[in-house]
Write a protein that binds this DNA or RNA. Sequence first.
DNA 1: CCGTGATCATTTTTT
DNA 2: ATGATCACGG
Length: 772
Amino acid sequence: MDSSLLADLNEPQRQAVMHTDGPLLIFAGAGSGKTSVLTRRIAYLIQQHNVAPYNILAVTFTNKASKQMKERIASLVGDMVARDLWAGTFHSVCARMLRERGDEIGIDQRFIIYDTDDQIALVKESLKELELDDKTYQPRAILSRISWAKEKLITARELRSRSEHKPFDRGVAAVYKLYQEKLKLANALDFDDLIVECVSLLKDSEAARAHYQRRFQYVHCDEFQDTNKSQYELLRLLSKQHKNLCVVGDDDQSIYAFRGADIQIILDFENDFPDAKVVKLEQNYRSTKTILNAAYHVVKNNKDRTEKRLWTEKPDGEHIVLMETPNENAEGAAIASEIRRLSQSGDYQFSDIAILYRTNAQSRAIEEQLYRLSIKYKIVGGLRFWERREVKDIVAYLRVTLNPNDSVSMRRIINVPARAIGSTSMAAVNQFASQQGLTFWQALKRCDEVGLPARSRNAIAGFVKMIEYFQASALRKSVPDFIKDVLETSGYLADLRNERTEEARGREENLGELVSVAKQYEQREAWQNPVEAEDSEGDDPFADVADDLLTDYPRELGSFLEEISLVADIDSYEEGANSVTLMTLHSAKGLEFPIVLMAGMEEGIFPHMRSFDSQTDLEEERRLCYVGITRAKERLYMSFAETRTVFGCTKRNPISRYITEIPQSLYIPVSMRPSALSNSIPAFDPDTRRTVAPPVPRWADVSTPQPKKLSPQAQIDLPFKAGDKVTHAKFGRGTVVQIVPDNGDAKVSVAFPSPVGIKTLMASFANLEKSA
DNA sequence: CCGTGATCATTTTTT
DNA sequence: ATGATCACGG
């Protein structure tokens, strides 16, 4: 067994695996086999050192990463053994510890988790109560400040005391305080609280501290460069007794400073743990020399990094292709046609290809062009399922059923669908509640005592009755059945059906999807978590909550809600289906693809405008670029558009500075544009931030040779010409009258039968299909 | 109380 | 461009 665990490891990797006792810092460059080392190390502990899996903790940032880790460890040591290993995200680990032991610091273990929308709602409420103006105190800004404080373990009180000369922080501190009270009242914790409260638990409860410190003989943390102060504190507390803290990270891939990740933590680790062993993994097993070279030349421009350079035994590989296009539609078209070419060559499948961009908004133009060429794609992120209105509404019903004191969810649904409980009634009930010192829910139940017209009182009484019915229903029904019950009984579905719009149809479908998600959950749980499962990472977060707390408590519903509170976009990403993957550069971290296309390599897009005035932010963006480049195994494309329409107005962006940092010998510029300007590729002048012609233009032709003057049709690849019959989704069949080129797109005039008449449509939006 | 229309701000990244 | 919020009138 020993030999198989260590067999195919290189020397530093082997050292990392075999250094079991004492703190260990592994600098793991991109593609250096980091996950492999981490999983082998854990397997090694179990098999060679007879450590019980129960005594090992592995923390990651995404569910996907932890799931993957569990699977890989299971394949090394067997399912039954791996079951007892505790592997999860920071948030899920903390949530679980708080469910087990939260009562020791006064947390009701049935707490629910508030997401960003809920948080915003709560901040708005607080602002109103404090009579603070939401223009000077924008809820988002307040919230991010509160979050900033929590990540640094700064309490409302501390924030206030250090805000002497900072009027904004004074306001924030006031909101922070009230916000926390409201959370408490709703028996809710926000994302940051999960960590913060867990740290409190370990600090303030002797018993809990002793329990967990004894238990966790070995603590591991993946993506350590992304940890913030509170998370680091948690790791230190957990590993304090046995002092076996193993962290893996890469300062060059730190891209989450905006949400509190502190790169300094990994850089200071050796100071905090003077006896730490440090291992550097610098051999890359993923990318070609060209790609690695490019990545290095970009990231080396950062000042705040430890110098290191990855190397590989792989060949030089293909040149990077740099594509210039007139606008974002043409960029999408160029990407799409290149993807088609690659797949037709037979060397690559769609699933080998990823398109990465800085912001989600960029995906639309690309999607349209992929769709045009019938290239299958899937998107990670963007409009998320769990954030859709209808889904959130129904989830709010579930939450209220579980916990009627969840004020945010209550407000959300009390009049959705409309049941004649408007703001006047709400205000009255609210006032009554604070007068009598009641919760909102208690006040609702006693609405007869509120001075309201009978009509309103009846409406409220009906609502209260409905919720009470749901509470009973939840106890005897399975989660999916219960959700169906809610959909019907609340009238939500009926309301939706009445709308008879395309949009409502879509919403209805999403709700159907919600039911099937619940079904899947139910099946998975039943299969994975036989009733006795005690400490298996079987994901019933209520497994350890004292039984007396749970009488009359629909625990299945509770754990379902927990699971869906902690999902990330990337968690739903699965390899397999043969389609191109589109996602943000952030989501791409940790993944790899034979072919990567990075779109929108322009100043203002990437680096994003918002980072222009901060050196730190620009360096973070640069690391993001590094992450993007190093996702590629074989071929890398970068594209930029000469003009781009953002917020409805068209801008001209200079080429990204990061491209200019890549040695010219590594890439081949390609112009997808017929205009005269295309004779020179713009180069970035760091002084003026403008593009200038390079000294020696080096041109290669596009894969399919382009004529000097491209007809607009060919340029955007329209499958029809004047005189052809086409079909439009709304207007039906018509005849193309005229095609006028329009800056990489085309205006197409189509004659439809009356009463529609002649319409002029933008080709890229109209989705015209040629018909016989 | 509810729906409509106007105005407005918004878009970086996410557990 | 799109979506959210707000003011007004039914």
